[in-house]
Each structure stands twice: as C-alpha cells, then as structure tokens.
Amino acid sequence: MKFLALITSLLTGALLMYATIDFPVWGDPDSPASLHVSPRYIEKVMEETSVPNMVTAVLADYRGYDTMFETAVIFSAGIAVVMLIRRPRQ
C-alpha cells in the first residue's frame, strides 16, 4: 500500500513537473495571467469601486458571487459539525 501510494504520488508529481516545463517563467510580468484579466482590476479598481485594496474589491465586488458561496461553505461546515456531533439538549 505504501509503495503504491509512493508510486502514485511520484507519478502525479512527475506529471506536474512535466507540465511545468511549459509554464511562463516564475514572476514574469508578461505572463498571460498578468496580461489578460487582471490588468483591469489593477487599473480601474479606483474609478470603478473606490476601494484601494484590490483584493477586497475583487473579492467582494468583481467576484463577489464567489465570496457569497465561500461564506456559505463556512456556514454549511458549521451546521454540518453541529449536526454531526452536537448532542441535543436534554
């Protein structure tokens, strides 16, 4: 089992490494991730939302819908734990 697990994780790692070969250089300011969607967040955040912290702006506004579900995840985890182990009041 352990051997199998080792092989599996090594294989996964190998696949990831193989994929990394084609990545843009780490920290390259001209990588697609830095050029395609994010520039707008950086450049327009003040005029569109007047929030200086881009992370907050993107989190709560541009991708606010994600964050709502993030909160829902937390909420459901809370309810889940309550349901799973809390013993009801006598």
Binding site: I74, F75, G78, V81, I85, R86, R87, R89, Q90
Partner: peptide, 21 residues
C-alpha cells in the same frame, strides 16, 4: 458568519459535541 461558525466549530470539537450538556 465566520466568527459564529468558528466559535461553534471550536466548541463542538473541543467538547466532542457535549455543547448542550
């Protein structure tokens, strides 16, 4: 939400669910 859930998670885990007792 985060505050309430984290507190409830912690209490539940630390008491093993004997929250109500």
């Amino acid at each position: 939400t985060v505050m309430a859930v984290m507190v409830s998670l912690f209490i539940d885990l630390v008491t093993g669910g004997k929250h109500g007792e």
